[in-house]
C-alpha cells in the first residue's frame, strides 16, 4: 500500500516540531504515520453539518482570577534550579539572532 505521507512531508513535520530523524526513523515514521492518518481519515465520512466544535467539555465560562499578587508557596529562585546554563539571574541560551 502506498504511503499517504511523503518523505518530504515527514521531514517538514520534523522540522516544524524541532526533531531530527535518522533515515531509518523517517522510513518508520512515514509508514506508521501514514497508517494512522489513514485510520483517522475515516472521519471524513462523518456528517457534522455545522456542528459546533467541542474543544472543552465543562461548559464553563469566564473563569477569572482577581488581580491580586499570588504567593505560590515556594522560593522563586527554585525555578532556576533546573536551568542548565545561566549567567547571574539570566537564563543563558546559544545565540539566537544575527543582527546585521
Amino acid at each position: 500500500m502506498a504511503n499517504t505521507l511523503s518523505r518530504d512531508e515527514i521531514l517538514k513535520l520534523a522540522k516544524l516540531s524541532r526533531l531530527i530523524l535518522s533515515d531509518k526513523e523517517v522510513d518508520e515514521m512515514q509508514k506508521e504515520l501514514s497508517s494512522i492518518i489513514d485510520f483517522v481519515s475515516k472521519l471524513s465520512e462523518a456528517k457534522v453539518d455545522n456542528l459546533e466544535v467541542s474543544d472543552q467539555v465543562t461548559g464553563l465560562e469566564s473563569v477569572l482570577r482577581e488581580d491580586n499578587p499570588t504567593d505560590y508557596g515556594y522560593d522563586i529562585t527554585e525555578l532556576m534550579s533546573n536551568v542548565p546554563y545561566s549567567e547571574g539571574d539570566y537564563i543563558k541560551v546559544p545565540k539566537m539572532l544575527s543582527e546585521s
Partner: peptide
C-alpha cells in the same frame, strides 16, 4: 479543518 476541526465536531456529536 479536515482533521482537527472535523474531529472536534464529531466530538460534539458524540457528546
Amino acid at each position: 479543518d479536515a482533521y482537527y476541526k472535523k474531529a472536534q465536531q464529531v466530538r460534539t456529536k458524540l457528546i
